[in-house]
């Protein structure tokens, strides 16, 4: 025990220091470690959550972008398709209309030709008749004259 007291070890002081340390530990736990560890943990959780959220939103953004791109692509394709279909149907319509017009014009032409022919025929007939009449009249007249001549000749013969 002499060695211990030579080194200054005193039971009362030792116990006083132990109690002092335990009180300090308790108070520091209450006022320092507990609140600070709590806030550190909270901050860690918050940061982790923030990172996770940002990752999620990044993912959503990417997905949305992809969707939008797909949608635009599809819309473009649809629009092209519609334009082509319209073009096609318009061309068909146009060609139909043209052929219809052709047919009609041909019909009109044929009709006109027929009419013209009929009219020509009529004119011909009329002209024929008129010419025939004229010839007849002329012949008649000639004949008359001839008959007279013949009669005259006959008469002359008779006389002879």
């Amino acid at each position: 025990m002499d060695a211990l007291s030579a080194l200054g070890i005193d039971g009362k002081l030792l116990i006083a220091q132990i109690i002092n340390f335990l009180i300090l530990m308790f108070l520091l736990y209450k006022f320092l470690y507990n609140p600070i560890l709590k806030i550190l943990k909270e901050r860690q959780d918050k940061i982790a959550k923030g990172l996770k959220d940002s990752e999620l939103s990044q993912k959503i953004l990417q997905e949305t972008e992809e969707k939008t791109r797909k949608l635009i692509n599809k819309a473009n394709q649809d629009a092209e398709k519609i334009v082509q279909e319209t073009k096609k149907s318009m061309e068909e319509e146009a060609s139909k209309a043209i052929s219809k017009a052709q047919t009609k014009s041909e019909e009109i032409l044929v009709a006109a030709r027929n009419q013209a022919k009929i009219e020509q025929d009529q004119i011909f007939t009329k002209a024929k008749k008129e010419i025939a009449d004229l010839v007849a009249t002329a012949t008649e007249k000639i004949l008359e004259t001839k008959q007279e001549k013949t009669q005259i000749a006959k008469e002359i013969e008779k006389i002879k």
Partner: peptide, 22 residues
């Protein structure tokens, strides 16, 4: 032991100041 008490009191005061308005 006097100085270790002073240190302990200072530490507790600092701790309270640090986390009073955390």
């Amino acid at each position: 032991i006097l100085l270790s008490w002073v240190v302990s009191v200072l530490l507790i005061i600092l701790a309270v100041l640090a986390t009073d308005k955390i």
